[in-house]
Structure formats: C-alpha cells, structure tokens
Simulated assay, not measured.
Amino acid sequence: MLAASAVAQTAKEIRGASPYIAVENEPAPRLIVDPPVAEALAQGVFWAQYRVENLRIVQVFGEGARQVSPRIGHLHITVDDLPWWWADASDNNTVDIAGLPPGPHKVTISLVDADHNVFPDQVKTVTFIVPEHAKVIHGSHSK
C-alpha cells in the first residue's frame, strides 16, 4: 500500500490549485480537443471531448471576472465558418452538435476569458466528414 501511494499523484497535480487560494503567476491556459467520435458522425452528430488546463470553466461572465484566481473562462464554438457562435460554460467535457448533413464540416472551439477574449493560441479547429450514408438525427439523440 505504501509503495502504491508513493507514485500516486496528488489532488493538486490532477485538479489544479484549490479555488480558495489565489494563484500567483498562473501558467497560460491550454485547450486540448480530441477528434470527433466516428460512431456519432455516422449519425450526423459531432461529439468531441475536450479538457482545459490552468483554467476553470464556469458560468461567470464580465470584465471583473477576469481578475479571479484561479483563472476562469468558457468556450466559444462555431460551425462551418458561420458568422455566429455560442458560448459553452457547462464544462461537461464534450462538444455536442447534432443534425449535421452529410459532407465536410469544420468546428472551431476557442478558449476565452470571462469577458469573451480569446486566449492566445487557444483556438482548435476540427475538420471532419459526415458520411453520405449517415442517418441524420434531428432533435434529441442518444448513444
């Protein structure tokens, strides 16, 4: 038991700093996005898991929130270069977009601060193809 606990990572190493302690000189936030789940694309659904480092995704917005430590923010998501985007502050670890027609698509995910400013170099673009034979599901869907 002692040997196993010696190699175990601490909660801070896995989850980051405690929200009760201000972080001095915070490292830059980082967004990691996985490729979309192929089985979902066959149904016209984009599911891509993500995670962030050095930032907490929470439903807090506005200029004053930029001063919070540890740092907070959320995601902005666009589809196929459309001129609109939506904010996702749910931190559910998966971007979910249903009803995509067959063909090529592009989803852009940006990590932003609480005042909607994009963090430098934290925009990830995922390109993919929904197969022609995809059974497109509109409205609710399941695994």
Results as ranks from 00 to 15, higher is better:
17 A>W: 08
58 V>L: 14
132 E>D: 13
16 G>Y: 12
12 K>H: 11
127 T>Y: 05
57 I>A: 07
86 W>T: 13
59 Q>C: 11
31 L>C: 04
40 A>N: 02
116 H>Y: 12
138 H>T: 15
74 H>I: 12
55 L>V: 10
40 A>C: 06
86 W>C: 11
103 G>R: 01
69 S>E: 10
109 I>W: 04
60 V>L: 13
3 A>G: 13
65 A>C: 08
45 V>C: 03
31 L>I: 01
65 A>N: 06
133 H>N: 15
124 K>M: 14
9 Q>H: 09
136 V>T: 10
111 L>C: 11
47 W>M: 07
18 S>P: 12
81 D>W: 07
121 D>L: 11
17 A>E: 14
66 R>Y: 01
77 I>A: 08
87 A>R: 11
104 P>Q: 03
77 I>H: 03
43 Q>R: 10
98 A>Q: 00
94 T>L: 05
8 A>W: 14
21 I>V: 15
39 E>T: 00
106 K>I: 05
106 K>S: 03
61 F>V: 02
13 E>D: 10
44 G>S: 09
134 A>Y: 06
75 L>E: 04
133 H>R: 12
64 G>M: 12
112 V>W: 06
130 V>H: 04
71 R>I: 03
27 P>L: 10
25 N>T: 03
132 E>Q: 11
39 E>K: 00
101 P>R: 02
137 I>V: 15
94 T>N: 03
81 D>Q: 09
32 I>P: 00
28 A>P: 02
80 D>W: 10
60 V>T: 01
139 G>Y: 11
79 V>W: 08
26 E>I: 01
51 R>V: 08
126 V>S: 06
43 Q>H: 09
135 K>D: 09
11 A>R: 12
92 N>F: 10
66 R>W: 04
26 E>R: 00
4 A>T: 10
114 A>D: 05
95 V>H: 00
37 V>E: 04
125 T>R: 05
142 S>C: 04
74 H>P: 12
126 V>C: 07
1 M>T: 10
42 A>Q: 09
106 K>R: 00
32 I>W: 04
89 A>Y: 14
39 E>M: 01
29 P>M: 06
82 L>C: 11
138 H>G: 09
73 G>C: 12
118 V>C: 11
91 D>Q: 07
42 A>D: 13
40 A>Q: 04
88 D>V: 03
119 F>C: 11
